[in-house]
């Protein structure tokens, strides 16, 4: 017994070091598993509050670009509205069945108060949380493409798993055909992502547009993401398909959060058919 006490006394600093190191590694591992990063994240009131304060100063310097982006989006929306009006006028015998107009997606806006894009695993913080109805696993987009998926929430802040993250895998497809692939990031350039798992019979060329696929229950189908920058075809396989994003990930201000109102329904159905 005395020897044990002697041992502990002799190595007490090393044991303390070991204990704290194990604690740190527990946080790292928790952080890697998607839903468990409850403790160490910037969605708490202290860091969220500080980021919120500094962002309100920074925001002032980006008003011009933000306004330009809004004007662009407004023009695009007006254009699509006019196209829609045209088609509705032509089809004058439409039946107005209210059940067919069920809303599938609900959009909320939020402001990015902390943006990271230089690390291997990037996370963003936005200024809305549980009080505003944000939960985990909601899509985050802006007018030029997708940003990421919400991760941890606190009462007023939420962290977002950016698409510039090793753990982010987004289902996407080619705009001109229905071939699905997965969007990942190799950690090199923050405006260039990689497309993998695309079947080899897919046909595309440089400059083709990539949009979100309808397979995920998070993002609506058809959000434009970027264009194919270059690719190689080796060993009968597509290699290194680089996607140039429409978004500039280093300057994003306001974003929209997409809530899929039929998500539970879709997931339950998929689970049921998997069990059969």
């Amino acid at each position: 017994m005395q020897q044990i006490i002697y041992f502990i006394r002799k190595f007490r600093y090393f044991l303390l070091f070991l204990l704290l190191e194990i604690l740190a590694f527990t946080f790292i591992i928790q952080h890697h598993s998607y839903h468990k990063s409850k403790f160490v994240n910037s969605a708490n009131s202290i860091s969220g509050g500080i980021y919120n304060k500094t962002n309100s100063i920074n925001e002032f310097f980006h008003l011009k670009t933000e306004n330009e982006r809004l004007i662009e989006e407004n023009t695009a929306l007006k254009n699509s509205l006019s196209i829609k009006n045209l088609s509705e006028n032509q089809d004058s015998f439409k039946l107005n069945d209210s059940a067919q107009y069920g809303q599938k997606y609900e959009y909320t806006y939020a402001k990015i108060i902390n943006n990271n894009y230089t690390n291997r695993n990037n996370t963003l913080t936005i200024n809305k949380g549980i009080k505003q109805g944000i939960t985990s696993d909601l899509g985050v987009i802006n007018s030029k493409g997708i940003i990421g998926v919400t991760k941890s929430t606190s009462s007023n802040y939420t962290t977002v798993l950016s698409i510039l993250n090793n753990n982010s895998k987004i289902n996407v497809r080619l705009k001109n055909s229905n071939h699905f692939g997965t969007l990942v990031w190799d950690g090199k350039d923050y405006n260039i992502l990689q497309l993998i798992d695309i079947p080899r019979q897919a046909q595309f060329k440089d400059g083709d547009t990539i949009i979100t696929g309808g397979k995920s229950a998070i993002f609506p189908e058809g959000i434009k993401i970027g264009v194919i920058k270059n690719f190689k075809f080796e060993n009968n396989q597509f290699q290194d398909i680089n996607i140039q994003l429409f978004n500039d990930m280093s300057s994003i201000g306001y974003v929209q959060i997409v809530k899929n109102l039929e998500r539970t329904e879709q997931l339950n159905l998929e689970k049921e058919s998997l069990n059969e």
Partner: peptide, 16 residues
């Protein structure tokens, strides 16, 4: 780590 959402990476390195 709290501010940069990195789990415990900085804590582990700083402690070392």
């Amino acid at each position: 780590d709290f501010f940069s959402d990195s789990g415990g990476i900085n804590a582990a390195a700083t402690l070392a």
